[in-house]
Structures are given as C-alpha cells and as structure tokens.
C-alpha cells in the first residue's frame, strides 16, 4: 500500500518534470523563432532597428514643431478636415450596415437548426471564410480600377469583409439560441421568415448589435487606411498632405488629431453601449 503511494508520487513528480521540460522547450523554441524572425524582418527592411530607434520621434517632433509655430492655422484646418471625417464615417457606417445585413442573411443560412437549406450550411460557411480572408485593399484597388476613384469602392470592399466577419460571429451567437420559441412558432404554422423574425431575432439582437458596434469601430480605421490608397476621406487628405511635405505639416497634425479623437470617442461610446447591451437593457 505504502509502496504504491510512493511510486505514485514519484510518477506524478516525473510527469510534472516532463511537462515542465516540454514547456521550457516550447518557450525556448518560441523565443528562437521570434528572434530569428525579427532578424530576417530587420535584414529585409530599409533601415535597421537600432539605427531608427533614436529617430522615432524625429518626425513627430518635426511636424509638431511646424504645427506649433503655425498654431493659429490649426482651428481652421480642423474645421476644413470635418467634411473628410464625415466621409470616412459614412463609409464605415454604410459598410457596417450593408455588411451587417448580408452577414445576418449568411448567418441564418449557415447556422445549424435554423438554416433554410440545411445541406448547404458548409457551403455558406466556406463562402464566409473566403470573404473574411480577402484583404479589403485588394477589393478596393480592383474596384477603383473598375468604378473610378471615390468612396463607393472602399464602401463595397469594407462591406464585403464585414459580411464575412459578422456572419461568423452572428452565427456563433445564433447557435446558442433557445429553440423553444422557434418550435412554438412552427407549431402555430409560422413560416421560416416568421420563425426567424419573432423566435430568433429577439434573442440574438443584443449580442448582434454589440458585435456590429465593435465592427463599426474597426471599420472606421479600415476606411481611414483605404483612403490612403485613393478611396477618399481622411486617409486621402493625409496622404496628399504628407506628399506635400514641409509646409503642410500643420494639416497633418490636424488630421492626426481629428482621427485620434474620433477613434477615442467612438471607442468610448461603443464600449459603454456594448456593456449596456450585454448586461441587459435596451440601447435607447
């Protein structure tokens, strides 16, 4: 009896030691991978890490110095940037709206137990995976080639990705739905659309709205970046100001500031709204 316990303890300790060894090897491997990866990335970079490190504040210093001397321009530039900001926000909002609607449709088509055509759920899942994987910039650039420069290509590109991303999150939330209301509606002869609208929607609405809000936040950033490649909005203004270089740095600062403030404000508002949504209670 005692011998058995002793050998059990020894075995346990050996097991712990082995686990720790594996853990240590994994961690060491990770660090080797990270360090060598960083070296490769640094080699292929135009400037080295240590050479650039002390210059990291040079550019901010330069632009802020210029903005500081021309501080009386800043309020005017701030106001001048507002139309572009509205365009960036519009792109994000419309893309979230259309992407969300398409995501809803995809979610219903790809959720087990709710799907209109249960056999096709894997197909719709793969479609969503592909939509999520395609980078927005590619769609935006191709659409700029087809549709000309403007906000619509960026909007479609972001909406496309949003549909895939939200579709996945929506369908995950819909999988946990209580199916009893759906069955109840089916028993009184409700068709598929009625079952979804009255049985499922009320259950998933808080979660879905919270995901959509989070996505709106992400889409503002995406729309600013796409502006940089010629899709209008703040990103485009930033690019032209940067290409101009010295003399327009006060505008760069104004755009940086307005983008930063917008993201902070939307971040804060959506954070609070999401907490209210998830913890119960309506948004309005």
């Amino acid at each position: 009896m005692t011998a058995h316990t002793v050998s059990g303890t020894a075995e346990y300790l050996a097991l712990v030691r082995r686990r720790r060894l594996y853990g240590a090897i994994l961690v060491a491997l990770f660090f080797v991978l990270f360090a060598s990866g960083f070296t490769v990335a640094e080699d292929r970079n135009a400037g080295g890490f240590l050479d650039g490190l002390h210059r990291i504040f040079d550019f901010p210093k330069e632009i802020f110095a210029e903005a500081f001397t021309n501080w009386q321009n800043l309020p005017r530039l701030f106001v001048a940037a507002i139309p572009s900001l509205i365009e960036t926000l519009n792109i994000a909002a419309i893309a979230t709206l259309f992407g969300g609607l398409l995501g809803m449709a995809l979610a219903f088509l790809s959720t087990r137990g709710l799907a209109l055509w249960p056999r096709l759920t894997p197909v719709f899942r793969r479609i969503m995976d592909t939509m999520r994987a395609v980078p927005e910039i590619v769609i935006a650039l191709v659409l700029i080639f087809l549709l000309g420069v403007g906000p619509v290509p960026a909007m479609i590109a972001i909406a496309f990705h949003t549909a895939g991303a939200l579709g996945k999150l929506f369908s995950e939330a819909a999988e946990n739905v209580d199916l009893k209301p759906v069955e109840g509606l089916a028993s009184v002869g409700g068709n598929w659309f009625q079952r979804i609208w009255f049985g499922v929607m009320p259950q998933v609405a808080p979660n879905w709205s919270s995901y959509a809000l989070l996505r709106f936040e992400i889409n503002i950033r995406a729309s600013a970046i796409l502006g940089f490649v010629g899709a209008g909005g703040l990103g485009y203004d930033l690019k032209t100001a940067l290409q101009w270089g010295q003399g327009k740095y006060d505008q760069v600062v104004a755009i940086f500031a307005i983008l930063f403030l917008t993201i902070m404000i939307v971040d804060h508002l959506s954070d609070r709204a999401r907490q209210r949504l998830v913890k119960g209670g309506a948004l309005v």
Partner: peptide, 20 residues
C-alpha cells in the same frame, strides 16, 4: 487610438520601408 495608419506613417520615417 493612434490608428495603425498613423503608426505606419511615423515608423516609416524612422525605419524606412520594409517588413520590420
């Protein structure tokens, strides 16, 4: 809050273009 776009602009000035 400082978006990836702004970081990209600032860092490109310090380190030049490239994967790092």
């Amino acid at each position: 809050g400082v978006d990836g776009l702004i970081w990209t602009v600032i860092l490109s000035r310090a380190f030049g273009p490239g994967p790092m």
